[in-house]
Every structure is written in C-alpha cells, then in structure tokens.
Design a protein around this nucleic acid. Structure first.
Length: 666
DNA sequence: AATTGCTAAGTTTTT
DNA sequence: CTTAGCAATT
C-alpha cells in the first residue's frame, strides 16, 4: 500500500498526481518538485488499484530513471516498484526492436552505432560519393542526417547530403546496425507497420508518464502517441522555459501545442518553487517574460527575499576568474559552507580553463562536469569492438577498429581492398575476409594473416555468445591470446598511463561479469547497456571525488541546484552566443540563461567582462543584452574595482549571513 | 608504423 | 592560444 501522503503535496501537485485519466500536461517550473510529483503519481495510481506492470515512466537519461526508481522505492514496496517500467526513450525502443526488428529486415543481434561509428561511416561514404570538387564536412553531414530522422523530414532532394544520407542508411542496414536515432525511428516504424505489435505494446501500458517533455523531438512524440493511443492516459511533465536542446532536435511545440497532439487535456501548472529565494525567482521571471512563445507561469517561493543578485563588471576574463575563485575561498573560510555548495556556470567548456587555474592555485578542490568519457578511451573502445564483432561480425565499424589491433600483418591497403570489395559486392567487410575470391587477390603472406584473424574470431564466437555465469572469461582468453595488454603497455609513454589503461580494460571485464550476475541477455545485452548508459562511470568518479566546487556548463547544469551560484562570462556573443543570432535561436539562449539563474538556491552572482582572450588575443566585449532585461528590483550592479576597494568588515559580513540564515529559517 | 609539422577552426551534447 | 585532423616524412 502507498506510504505517501497526498496532503504533503501542494494543491497543484496534488491535482497533477490525482488526475489519473486522460491526457495531462504538467507544466513544472524549475524547482517545483517535478520528480516528487511523478513518483507520487505512480504511487497513487498503484494505490488506486493500477497494476504496477502497466505503468511506464519514460525519461531522457538513465540517471533520471534511476533516481525516480529510488524515490519510488521510498513510497511503495520494492517488489511493486520493480514492476514499474522506468526507462529512457532509447532503452524502451531497444526493447521494442529486440523483439521485433526482424520484421524490418534486420537480424536480432544488430549492433548500435555511436557517434564515432557514425562519423566513420559518413566519412567513408563521402569519400566514395562526392565528386572531386565537392566538399562536405562529415560532422555536419552526420548531424543533418540525424536531425532529418528526428524531425521525420527527408533531406533536401538532389543534394549531396541526401545522397550520403541514403547510402548511410543502406550501409548501416548491411552492417546489421542501427544508430541512436534509428532506435526511435525504427521502433516507431515497427509499431506503425505491425498492427499486432502495436496492439501488444498499447495494451501493455495503461499509464504513460513522460519526463522532460520539453526536450522531446517529433519521433519521441510519435512514439508516445502510438503507445498512448489505446488508453489515452498520458501524463507529460515539462517546462517550455527550460527547453534548451532545440539544436539537437527537441521541438518546443510539443509543449506549446500539446492540445493539438492530445485533445482536451488537463493542464496543471506548478509554480511554487522549493529551491530559491524570492529575489532569484523574481529576477528569473523578469527575464523569461521576454520570450514571446511560452506558456505563462510565474515562480514564487516562501523561502524569503534573500540576498540581492549581484552583477559584477570585470575588466577582463583573468580578473573575473580570479575574483570568483578568491571569493569562493573567502566565503568558504568564513565557515558554514562547504566547497560543494558552490558552482560556477558558463556557456562554453573553454571558459573553465581560467577558473581551473585559479582554483588550483588556491588549492580549492573542484570537479568539472562534462568532458571526455571513459568510453571514448582507446582501450575501452578496442575491447568493446572485439565483443561487438563476436556478437555481430558484419558490424564494419567495430571490425575495422580491431582488424589490425594489435598489428597482425593486415595492412591499411589490404583493409582498403577489402572495403572496396565489400562495397562492390554489397556485402559486409567480414564477408570479404572470408571470401575465397577476395583472398585470392592477396599475397600468400597476407592471406595467412587474414586466415589467422578469421580463425581467431570464429574460435571465440560460440563461447562469447553463449550465456554463462562468467561472460568475461572468453573475452579474457581472447585478449590473452592476442597479447592485447602487452601491446597496450608498449604504446604508453609513462608507467602511470600504462597502469591506468590496463586498469580500464580490467574494469570493463569486471563490469561484464557483474552484468552476467544480474541479467541473462549475455554479451549483447551488456553492450546494449553500455551504449545506452555511458554516464555510469562518471557516477563512480563522483562518489570518490564528490567534494569540491562544481564547474559546469549551463546545459549540463539543468536539473541541478547549488546554494551559491556564479554565472561567468555573461557577454554579448557568448550568452547569447554569436551563432544563435544567425540561427534565430535567441529565445533558446534566454532560456539557457534562465536555467542558469534558477540553479541558485541562496545567492547568485553574475559576472561579465569588458575584455576577453578569444582565439589567442584579447578582444573587447559588451555585457549581454539579457542583463538589460533583468528587473532592477533585486539587483546590485558593481564594478569589480569598486567591490574590492570596499572592505567588508568581519562583523557586517557575519550579520549578513546570519540574516540570510534567519530568512531561510535555518 | 610512428612521429612531425602544417592548416584550419573555434557552442551547447541527455542517448 | 589550443587542438584536431591530415599529409608528409623518417
């Protein structure tokens, strides 16, 4: 039975929780208890007699899904919570596809291509397709292809991108692989084309919940509509004011035109904020009001006015970083705050450099969110590619990665011949390698190398695919046979690097064994999970390395909160970014600033510079036009020099904090 | 096969 | 100023 109390919720939250039937749009402003409402709603549905197995909550990240499940476990029994489907869009689609993709002409052991794999394939196709005078940036082509898929719109006919895109899809299919976008696209296609499958999935989920609805794209909306079309119980939670992923295909009109997609919905707006002071919310409200297309809402809180928002003008970026770092240190040493209570937000990752230097100089612990992933590391990708080839040898991207790693006498020119042969015969690379006809073109020596490689893969295939308690064992033997670790060590410059890379390999194998303990989908399931959940390593590092000031982009900060927030570099050209003006996404930049502001719980400091080093040389800059839009009521505008020349006595500083604490009721 | 040197470009990144 | 990607070199 439900162990939560409806009267712990405010009126709007309660309305959102108890409106069980029909479409529901929950407009959840920043810090209004969104996760609480979703989990309470699930608990409430179950309390009202719903079967947990017919409830699905869809999120964007695994982190959000895990958090939701953890919260739910605090409200209902573990067994019941376990029956509720909580999944990312991609993982849900993967489940749909693994059970029925053969009807679209793919084999069920298909691989998933990540961005790197996509780029590799696109490059190859451009090289083969483009005339000599034609040029096409592979990154641009990749993102155009991706956007077209997500928007459900074809690429412009007659263009090179179109030709590349068409070939790209064919090649993917030939490799028995799908990319991230295909997971959604093909799942939607499958449900549309296969009546019985559609009915099965519609039947299964009587209640749908969708998190971060403002970030959904056309395909995701289609998927939701398909799944919900029988029972029509779809509750979406989102905030159009926090839609900052339009450039990735998110379509804010999914929120703005919700009624068109799901007629006669109930709409609940959550406006009571439990995070920030009134001064912060007043400022945020004043800014976002300038966006023309939005669902009106006004955040408020009963936390108290709090301190004024400071806008500090700095002569240059070095002074800015120095000021922020030194002030964090001063405030920390004054006591009562921890390093992890501070966050510095910025528009671009490059802005973190100066901050890092200063924090290091002052020996302040910090953590940077974002950056290169564990899974981008060479040795990890190698090992995963070996695993992938064992599951699906027709995955050219993975095969190319390992065919001569470590070097085994299959030269680049041999590989190139194999690629050409496979293209001519419309076959996979693997099929070229095993074809006597292709091998016949090669020297005896190369033939022997190739045969050894093919035999190697084949000899481990069966063992690797068989589900077993220690799935890492065959992989470990394979790596030992090719002496991978020795090769890895040889390539490292320092001993430390070798240690850490070797450790990474062992970590992956250990993860695989752990996966084997709790799941039965074997190697393929493990690879799926890794591809669709690349953030868990970051989590692990978080645990050890939790302490410290957070340096983070405003994008990555969405959903987080910090007692003391600095937003740095709020200048025209950075926020809003120069490119956004050309792209006509000024509103989205404003929302980004809004997201930044609403991360702050107690104090907010916004800085901008009059000069900044860009591309090596210092150039002048103007304060962001957004700063003019902030209502002056709770603002305190200062120059850095003035601020530093006005000494704050120990006593008055203490009173300031004491007053704040009193206001916060602490 | 690996290193060196040149060129060009320079947001944001949940899967 | 960096840094990534690529070509040319040893």
């Amino acid at each position: 039975m439900a162990r939560f109390r409806l009267f712990d919720l405010n009126d709007a939250q309660r309305a959102a929780v108890t409106a069980t039937d029909g479409p529901l749009l929950i407009l959840a402003g920043a810090g209004t208890g969104k996760t609480r409402v979703i989990t309470a709603r699930v608990a409430y549905l179950i309390g009202q007699g719903a079967d947990p197995a017919e409830i699905v909550a869809v999120t964007f990240t695994n982190k959000a899904a895990n958090e939701m499940r953890a919260r739910l476990e605090g409200m209902i029994s573990r067994e019941q919570a376990a029956k509720v489907t909580m999944s990312t869009f991609h993982a849900l689609c993967l489940r749909i596809l693994r059970s029925g993709i053969d009807r679209l002409g793919y084999k069920k052991n298909f691989s998933i291509y990540d961005e790197g794999d996509q780029i590799g394939l696109v490059k190859k196709i451009i090289a083969a397709t483009a005339a000599k005078d034609e040029k096409l940036d592979p990154n641009l082509a990749r993102s155009a292809i991706s956007k077209a898929k997500n928007a459900g719109q074809p690429l412009a006919p007659g263009t090179l991108v179109r030709a590349v895109g068409e070939r790209y899809d064919l090649e993917l299919k030939r490799a028995n692989a799908v990319d991230f976008d295909d997971l959604l696209l093909l799942a939607v296609r499958l449900l549309r084309e296969q009546r019985n499958l559609k009915q099965r999935w519609q039947q299964r989920y009587r209640y749908l919940l969708v998190d971060e609805f403002q970030d959904t794209n056309r395909l995701q909306l289609d998927l939701i509509a398909l799944l919900a079309s029988k029972h029509r119980n779809v509750a979406v939670v989102g905030d159009d004011d926090q839609s900052i992923y339009g450039w990735r295909g998110a379509d804010i009109s999914n929120v703005l035109q919700f009624e068109r997609h799901f007629p006669r919905p109930k709409i609940v707006t959550l406006e009571q904020n439990y995070r920030s002071t009134s001064a912060i919310l007043f400022t945020a409200n004043g800014l976002i009001k300038n966006n023309p297309r939005r669902r009106p809402k006004k955040l408020w809180s009963s936390i108290g006015t709090g301190e004024q928002i400071r806008i500090i003008s700095c002569p240059n970026d070095r002074e800015e970083a120095r000021f922020i770092s030194e002030e964090i240190q001063r405030n920390r040493l004054r006591g009562d705050v921890r390093w992890e209570d501070f966050a510095v937000l910025f528009r671009m990752n490059a802005q973190s450099r100066l901050l890092e230097e200063n924090l290091r100089r002052l020996q302040i612990p910090y953590r940077i969110i974002g950056g290169k992933s564990f899974f981008d590391r060479r040795e990890i990708k190698d090992v995963l590619a070996y695993m992938t080839v064992l599951v699906n040898p027709h995955d050219d991207a993975s095969l190319l990665r390992i065919i001569n790693t470590p070097a085994r006498g299959i030269s680049a020119s041999t590989t190139e011949m194999a690629v050409t042969w496979s293209a001519q015969h419309n076959n996979s690379l693997w099929q070229a390698l095993v074809s006597p006809e292709f091998r016949g073109q090669l020297s005896a020596r190369t033939q022997a190398s190739l045969e050894r490689f093919v035999a190697l893969i084949e000899s481990y295939t069966e063992a690797a695919r068989k589900p077993q308690a220690e799935p890492a064992e065959p992989i470990r033997r394979l790596l030992r046979e090719i002496d991978y670790i020795a090769e890895l060590r040889r390539q490292c410059k320092t001993h430390d690097e070798a240690e850490s890379r070797e450790e990474n390999v062992h970590d992956v194998l250990r993860d695989l064994n752990q996966y084997g303990q709790r799941a039965s989908e074997g190697l393929r399931g493990f690879l799926d999970e890794i591809l669709l959940d690349q953030e868990r390593e970051e989590e692990e590092e978080d645990v050890e390395d939790r302490r410290g000031v957070t340096l983070i982009t405003m994008h990555a900060a969405k959903g987080l909160e910090f007692p003391h927030v600095y937003i740095a570099g709020v200048e025209e050209g950075i926020l809003p970014h120069d490119r956004s003006k050309a792209e006509g996404s000024l509103d989205e930049e404003r929302r980004l600033f809004y997201v930044g502001i609403t991360r702050a719980m107690r104090t907010l400091t916004i800085t901008h510079c009059y000069a900044r080093v860009r591309f090596g040389s210092s150039s002048p800059c103007q304060p962001s036009s957004f700063l003019k839009e902030l209502p002056p009521d709770h603002l305190q505008r200062t120059n850095l020099e003035t601020l530093l020349n006005t000494p704050v006595s120990e006593a008055s500083a203490k009173t300031g904090f004491a007053q704040l604490r009193a206001a916060l009721g602490m």
